[in-house]
Simulated assay, not measured.
Amino acid sequence: MTVLFTVASLDPADGGVPECVQSTCSHLAGCGVNVEIVTGRSHPEASVLKPSHDNVNTTYATARSKTARLWTFWRTLSARIDRVQPDIIHDNGLWLPTNILSALAARRAGIPHVVTSHGMLEPWAVQHRGWKKKAAWYGYQRAILERADVLHATAPMEAQNLRDLGLWGPIAVIPNGVPLPDTWKQEPSSGERRQALFLSRIHPKKGLPNLIEAWSQVQPDGWDLIIAGPDENDHRWEVVAAVKEHGLGDVVSFPGPVRGEDKWALYRESDLFVLPTHSENFGVVVAEALASGIPALTTTGAPWSILEEEDCGWWVETTVEALETALSDAASRSDSERLAMGQRGRALVEEQFSWEHVAAELRAVYEWILGDVPRPDCVRFDD
């Protein structure tokens, strides 16, 4: 089986989609799927995430101007389809011209088309810059999704949001995978201070102003707050201004983007992970925190009710008041209580969110589309 993935970019600065595509493709190749990727690139030296498996071939549609990039993407994609004759085309993301080109290419070649929306149809995401997305929805995006052979959602909540938009075709509910670090937090923190960590894009949808307001109300004694991640749309300066306004400059820091082993070390050094988001289709950073052995606090904007079900964190409303209550509770717990919560979270990720499990589920969906196996349990029609 050959699956051709299309994605606008594999630049790590473009958020979680490039990293998700890179990991998905690597692990699909690990379970015997021939994987091709066609992606855009602004210039030959542009930073990209490269899949780690040898059985993944990446072709770059490289052009400096936006207009030339689209024409190059179409020619590159068409040529690659003609050459490798893929069984499935799997597109990633929404709202971009490359998504139109992927759908057109699949239809022209008569190849089944799978779309992963990556949370871009969550209610908050749809309302953000809403008039542009409304025009795109009725102009092309709804038609693409209605004609797709399967839509991929990463949680039941995201699948329901797709249904609420009138999309009634088959939806495969398969979570994002999470790499399991070899080392994780297994001892309580020492010293006098404790550390809460936010690690994600610094973007309006992440709810950081609410977190700063809640932190200023609780002001947990002996705690620091680290806000790590790349800035988007200069939102960092709004958050910095809120920190200064509340007099929190001594306890809140902004280390910027953190990747690789530095990222995993930062998780392990922390005592609590906080994602005060307005909207997530999955929230992979929550799973990464649990995999690192620390409890997580997030909102009902993310599909993580299991945090409370498994007693490995807090899942609260997207309000300042709810964040205040949860932060106060988390900070008042003993080091051993928080560590025990983190160990339960690690066990949960090992059981349900390994990349091997995700790749096997996706492969079963592809085989079902091609008529080779019965419908997998993860594929839903009208619920």
Rank of each mutant, 00 (worst) to 15 (best):
V7Q: 06
A8V: 06
A13E: 12
C20Q: 11
V21F: 13
C25M: 10
L28H: 07
A29S: 04
A29Q: 01
C31R: 04
E36F: 08
E36I: 05
V38N: 06
T39A: 15
A46I: 07
S47Y: 12
V48I: 10
S52T: 10
T58L: 09
T58N: 06
T59A: 13
Y60S: 07
Y60M: 07
A68S: 12
T72K: 15
W74V: 06
T76R: 12
L77N: 01
S78T: 11
A79G: 14
A79T: 06
I81M: 14
V84C: 13
Q85K: 14
P86T: 08
D87K: 13
I89E: 01
H90D: 02
G93F: 00
L94F: 04
L94G: 01
L96W: 11
S102D: 00
A105E: 00
G110Y: 03
V114Q: 12
S117W: 05
H118V: 00
E122R: 01
W124S: 08
K134E: 10
A135C: 13
I144T: 11
I144P: 00
A148K: 03
D149G: 05
E158F: 05
Q160W: 08
L167T: 09
L167W: 11
G169N: 03
I171S: 02
P181Y: 09
W184K: 06
W184E: 07
Q186N: 15
P188R: 12
G191W: 08
E192N: 15
R193D: 12
R194C: 02
L197F: 14
S200Y: 02
H203T: 09
P204N: 08
K206S: 09
L208D: 02
L208G: 00
A214W: 00
W215I: 14
V218R: 01
Q219L: 15
D224T: 14
D224N: 15
P230H: 05
E232I: 05
R236D: 05
V239D: 09
V240S: 14
A241N: 03
G247N: 12
G247K: 14
V258M: 12
G260E: 10
D271W: 08
L272D: 01
F273I: 04
V274Q: 05
N281W: 03
F282G: 01
G283Y: 00
A289H: 00
L290C: 04
A291W: 01
S292K: 01
G293D: 10
T299E: 06
I306L: 13
I306A: 13
E308H: 06
D311E: 13
C312H: 05
W314I: 11
W315C: 13
V316S: 00
E317Q: 15
T319D: 07
T319I: 10
A331F: 03
S334G: 11
E337M: 08
M341Q: 08
L348W: 10
F353I: 00
F353E: 01
W355R: 02
W368I: 03
G371V: 08
V373L: 07
R380Y: 07
F381T: 06
D383V: 07
